[in-house]
Design a protein around this nucleic acid. Sequence first.
DNA 1: AGCAATAATTGCTAATAGCAATAACATGTC
DNA 2: GACATGTTATTGCTATTAGCAATTATTGCT
Lengths: 136, 136
Amino acid sequence: MSRRLFELILAIKRKCQCNEEQIQEELGLTASQFHGLIVLDAGGEVAGCEFARRMGLSPSRGSRVLNSLVTSGLVATRNRPDDRRTMEISLTSTGRRMKNRIIERMKACESRVCDRLDDSGVRRVREALELLETVL
Amino acid sequence: MSRRLFELILAIKRKCQCNEEQIQEELGLTASQFHGLIVLDAGGEVAGCEFARRMGLSPSRGSRVLNSLVTSGLVATRNRPDDRRTMEISLTSTGRRMKNRIIERMKACESRVCDRLDDSGVRRVREALELLETVL
DNA sequence: AGCAATAATTGCTAATAGCAATAACATGTC
DNA sequence: GACATGTTATTGCTATTAGCAATTATTGCT
């Protein structure tokens, strides 16, 4: 019998985890800060609530991650004039540099993986992951 | 430009996480216990060290996860007569039942996903994941 | 003005995780 | 046999991750 899909995903998850932890250590970031920066890379300015949602966290946890990013000088928040409950979160220049260093290292990891596949392999993996994401 | 692979993997990882957390809640298991049982399902009797290694944890953390599984009556340990430093870890009957309930629910999740794909899609996803795992 | 809903934070607690130190045992060397 | 060295497992400690419930501030509706 062939291996179950979720076991494969579990194994892949764990291997990726190692790469991420190494990058986090290199850059002196906690896991939360690391993921926060990646989330903020994706979309421009977001509210705190939306930030937590995109990270898949509770608002309270999101708030604390945000706080640690602000304390580290990586992101800045400002109140929205039209709704003073809500904030706008944006990367500082330090944060943008840090984010770029993350992306750069992630790409390097990705290249190392893709180098071990031929073009058709890379395409098949990408297509399969996209397919899997849509049906999950 | 197409999405980066690691972003896709991140998204997939998060979606799977939700399924796992739901199962953990249903069965009254912590995340560690849940993963411990899956690891113990894979190979028969293992030593504590090996258990930690397969879970991708430090020995100290492995020891504590193991302790919580023993306390919950899900696994049993016994000393190996030929090397009294080392233990053999095995599932109790309760643990086996619990493990089966996990597998059953994981399979159900997997079926729900596969139902949304045709045969060729399932095959392509499985092959791509296997390919990805080998090169990671 | 009064009130429900929303956004964000804070106190609290639990789970997760590794490092360093330690104890118990095994193995090889003298 | 005695001793050094390495292995296995545990424990104390600390940090990080995470959610629930309560709270504050603000908005929008009646």
